[in-house]
């Protein structure tokens, strides 16, 4: 059951379900692609998430009730709109100390060896549900539950850019250095956020992601190559 309701006088929330599932997310993605192509006047931005899409608009330019009607009509359209292509992106990760200072703790909590945590984390394929929190931060689905780990009691003031982390049942990558409360298990040399470029992020909603373990030597080599490309 799809609901289309005002979230404020300048935004409309379109919800496709309640839980988190790839099926529901496909609807979000399809509708996001449709709205991106429609390019409706007065719409400022589209924010997809697990099961909803937030449409922000300028009430100086477009009347709220009219936009609501337009969205209600578009949502009823049969699923003719093609789903955008889904890419597979490999993210190299140097797991463990010093770049993943919490790996041992995550392993201990899970009753596993660090090697097993790495094997499980890098053995799964993840879906980028959406980017949120900070520019380019991917909300990934598909992490094996055995390696869930609670958020830190006190968030770190500064998590280095590229840190790969586990928070509860989720895993993610910090694109920019920021405060963060997830447990850090490794770091990628890849840049996830390019402020001046279009698109400005490495990952996009709907991408599939695999983590590939690399050595500290590989990390340094890839990092300097990444910096040379700039």
């Amino acid at each position: 059951m799809v609901t289309v309701r005002f979230a404020s006088d300048h935004s409309i929330r379109v919800a496709f379900g309640e839980g988190i599932s790839p099926d529901c997310h496909r609807e979000v993605r399809r509708f996001w692609a449709l709205l991106s192509a429609e390019n409706i006047g007065g719409v400022l931005s589209l924010h997809p998430a697990y099961n909803s899409l937030l449409v922000s608009f300028d009430p100086r330019v477009t009347r709220g009730p009219e936009l609501l009607e337009t969205l209600q009509a578009l949502v009823r359209l049969p699923d003719r709109f093609p789903l955008p292509e889904s890419r597979l992106v490999e993210i190299p990760v140097c797991y463990g100390n010093p770049m993943g200072p919490d790996l041992e703790q995550v392993a201990e909590l899970a009753g596993l060896t660090a090697e097993k945590v790495v094997a499980l984390h890098s053995g799964a394929e993840y879906l980028v549900y959406f980017l949120g929190f900070s520019p380019g931060f991917p909300y990934l689905g598909g992490m094996p539950e055995e390696i869930s780990a609670p958020r830190l009691a006190a968030p770190r003031r500064q998590v280095p850019a590229g840190s790969v982390a586990i928070g509860g049942k989720q895993t993610g990558i910090y694109p920019v250095s920021s405060p963060g409360g997830w447990q850090l298990i490794g770091r990628t040399p890849r840049t996830l956020f390019f402020p001046g470029q279009r698109p400005p992020t490495l990952l996009q909603m709907g991408d599939r992601v695999r983590f590939v373990p690399i050595s500290p030597g590989d990390y340094e080599r890839l990092k300097s190559r990444e910096e040379a490309i700039g």
Binding site: S8, I20, P48, A49, N51, S56
Partner: peptide
């Protein structure tokens, strides 16, 4: 609730 997009002024 599950994480969702937020509006300015929420």
């Amino acid at each position: 609730m599950v994480t969702e997009g937020v509006s300015l002024g929420a």
